[in-house]
């Protein structure tokens, strides 16, 4: 189902959308899977245009986790074949430059590997397109511009207008991906293309280790007398209890609540 404004905008010429997908990693079992954020990008791409989006992956064609994206209702997936330690950015930029595309969508960060989230910025920079981070939806497309909503902290949204074509990363707050069906996933076609991806020189001397647990920051009371420091260290963090209003009419109590809400800035 397309939003009405979008259907009108794309009636003459359907939007051409590409989604960059990666192989994800289950956070506990660490099995390969379809990446959550990339799946949301595919879902957003499917909802935008009647024409099926093209899926692009840089890596090895033999990967079974990639087929899960095809199970979302797509016919084919393009794999630019490259070594695991190759630099994906130039290969992707070279490939995308030749495609007639309007929007390129991807997740914010990859689930395995470096996961820096720099790839969409680097690709957009090489293509000379604008990059919009953390979008949740495309509201309308008119006059070669797209109105998108960007996710902000605390569930807030911001409206942005950006000229086509552009690159966007899709926030985890966007609509969740539809379920992947096994049959279509097996029937889908993986289009394997060789590409001349250079090894990533910058990362050659980096070392990868399992994540070390980070130390928790303790609140250490400094200064004051020994007695004060002892008190600060042993005092319970809560359990003081706040102000309790037992007396007064209901209206006074409601006024106290409202005054507190206004002071906190949640009621304007």
């Amino acid at each position: 189902m397309l939003p009405e404004s979008l259907s009108k905008a794309v009636a003459g010429q359907p939007l051409k959308i590409a989604a960059l997908v990666s192989v994800g990693q289950h956070p506990l079992s660490r099995r390969e899977r379809q990446a959550d954020q990339d799946s949301r990008a595919v879902e957003l791409a499917l909802s935008l245009s009647p024409q099926l989006p093209s899926l692009i992956h840089v890596g090895s064609a033999q990967n079974n986790a990639l087929r899960a994206y095809l199970g979302m209702g797509l016919n084919s997936l393009t794999v630019l074949n490259a070594d695991p330690d190759a630099d994906a950015v130039p290969a992707l930029a070279d490939y995308l430059r030749d495609q007639p595309l309007d929007i390129v969508l991807t997740g914010v960060r990859a689930e395995c590997g470096e996961g820096s989230g720099l790839l969409p910025y680097a690709v957009a920079s090489q293509l000379g397109w604008p990059m919009v981070p953390r979008i949740v939806s495309v509201v309308s497309i008119a006059d070669g511009h797209a109105d998108v909503w960007q996710a902000l902290p605390r569930g807030q949204r911001r409206a942005l207008r950006v000229p086509l074509p552009f690159v966007a990363s899709v926030d985890p707050a966007a609509d969740p991906a539809r379920q992947s069906a096994f049959g279509p996933a097996q029937r889908g076609n993986i289009d394997f293309r060789p590409c001349a991806a250079e090894p990533d020189q910058a990362r050659a001397d980096w070392e990868q280790h399992p994540a070390k647990p980070r130390p928790k920051r303790l609140a250490v009371a400094k200064g004051g007398t020994a007695a004060e420091r002892m008190k600060a260290a042993t005092a319970k963090p809560q359990g003081q209890g706040g102000q309790v209003m037992t007396e007064g009419t209901d209206r006074e109590k409601a006024e106290a609540i409202l005054a507190r809400l206004v002071a906190e800035g949640v009621v304007r």
Partner: peptide
């Protein structure tokens, strides 16, 4: 520049960054 992203241990020579899904650490200059 190849930025260090999610860097949590930094000194003059070396930096430790969290990788994807918070499962790996990358040690780098």
């Amino acid at each position: 520049e190849r930025a260090a992203v999610q860097a949590w241990q930094v000194n003059k020579e070396n930096t430790v960054c969290r990788g994807g899904s918070q499962l790996t650490d990358w040690h780098r200059p």
